[in-house]
Every structure is written in structure tokens, then in C-alpha cells.
């Protein structure tokens, strides 16, 4: 895990041309950035290249970092732009999943049962659009505040709240259906 307190210091050193500081920065926050990029880019090579471009931009732009946003927000925003650029340049646009929510209310017991299956949540995350996956990832796994997510995603705080709310509903529906299926399978045995 990165240590947020170290990042502004490291960026200062990077701005002075200190390559060891760049390595420390890469090792400190690179894994989190790589995870975030993968919420948008599923191809491992694309994700690795977007990480490389992000870190190269940190090296190039470190002297322009003024500390108006947190260092973490700043580098996540660069990564978001790199990922979005790659999606736009893709020769074939990747179709986003149909996120229409059925009228039925998810069964909470089925959702909870599905959460006991470690793979169920991964599968349900895979059914989300990349925008919803990114919002959920930033809000929960990365524990980044809504205003900071808004800065990263270049949108309003209201949009972030809507995305997180909608993504959670989609996940609960998906988990509910998975749980119901698991229950039916158990009964048929």
C-alpha cells in the first residue's frame, strides 16, 4: 500500500530529477494505479502500457504539481486520462454491458449468500460498465472521498454519488440472482 504522506515529498524530489525518488514513487503507488487502470482496461498489455505512460507523465510533470489536489488524486487523474485515451483510440470500441436493472428488488438473503462465494463478486464486478467499476473501486477498495473521485474522474460530486449508488444496486441485483441460483442448485441435489 502506498503511504500518502510520502508522495508529495517524493514528487518534490522527482521534480528535481531524482530517479531514485521516481523508483520509490513507482513502487509506492504503482500497484494501486495499476489496479485502478484495470477497472477500465482489461487487456494486460494495455494496462501495463497505460501504467508506463502515467508514470512517465509523473516524471515529466512533477515540477508542475502545486499541491492543490492531493498527490494521490493527481496521479490517479493522470492514470484515468491515459486509460480513457486508450479506450478512445481502440480500433474497435468495446461494447459496454447492458446495465438495465430489473424491476424486482434484490433478495438480501440471496445477495448475502452469494457474497460467501469469493468468485461471485468478481463475476458481478465484471458485468459493470468501466465507469461504474472505476467509481466503486475508488470509493471502496481505494477508500478515496467523493470530492477526490470527482477530481479524478473529471465530473461533479453528484455524478460520483449517482455512479456509486447505481453500481451498488447493480451489484446487489447480480449477487441476488447468483445467490438464488446457488440456492436452487443446492435444493436440486
Amino acid at each position: 500500500m502506498s503511504k500518502p504522506d510520502d508522495l508529495p515529498f517524493l514528487i518534490g524530489r522527482i521534480a528535481a530529477g531524482d530517479k531514485r525518488a521516481m523508483k520509490a514513487f513507482y513502487e509506492a503507488i504503482g500497484p494501486d494505479i495499476h489496479r485502478f487502470i484495470q477497472t477500465r482496461l482489461r487487456d494486460p498489455h494495455e494496462a501495463a502500457d497505460a501504467l508506463q505512460e502515467t508514470m512517465l507523465d509523473v516524471w515529466r510533470q512533477a515540477e508542475r504539481f502545486e499541491g492543490r489536489s492531493s498527490a494521490r488524486t493527481w496521479v490517479f487523474a493522470i492514470a484515468r486520462n491515459k486509460a480513457v485515451d486508450r479506450i478512445r483510440k481502440a480500433p474497435i470500441a468495446v461494447a459496454e454491458p447492458d446495465e438495465t436493472i430489473a424491476d424486482d428488488r434484490p433478495n438480501p438473503h440471496d445477495s448475502i449468500e452469494a457474497l460467501d462465494d469469493a468468485d461471485a463478486l468478481h463475476r458481478c464486478m465484471g458485468t459493470l460498465s468501466q465507469v461504474h467499476r472505476a467509481a466503486i473501486h475508488l470509493a471502496y477498495f481505494q477508500d478515496i472521498s467523493y470530492p477526490q473521485i470527482a477530481a479524478i474522474e473529471a465530473c461533479s460530486v453528484g455524478t460520483v454519488k449517482t455512479r456509486v449508488f447505481h453500481a451498488k444496486r447493480l451489484l446487489l441485483h447480480c449477487l441476488s440472482h447468483t445467490g438464488a441460483r446457488l440456492r436452487a442448485q443446492a435444493l436440486s441435489k
Partner: peptide, 20 residues
């Protein structure tokens, strides 16, 4: 159920591919 989901989202690493 939502609480369980949020708890799980805090702990599930979504990255399918390892850090380079």
C-alpha cells in the same frame, strides 16, 4: 446486505493481472 457488499468491496482486489 449492502453492508456486507461494502465490506467485501473493501477487501476484494479487483485486479486480474499482477503489477509489472
Amino acid at each position: 446486505a449492502e453492508h456486507r457488499l461494502v465490506e467485501a468491496l473493501n477487501h476484494v482486489d479487483p485486479a486480474p493481472h499482477p503489477f509489472p
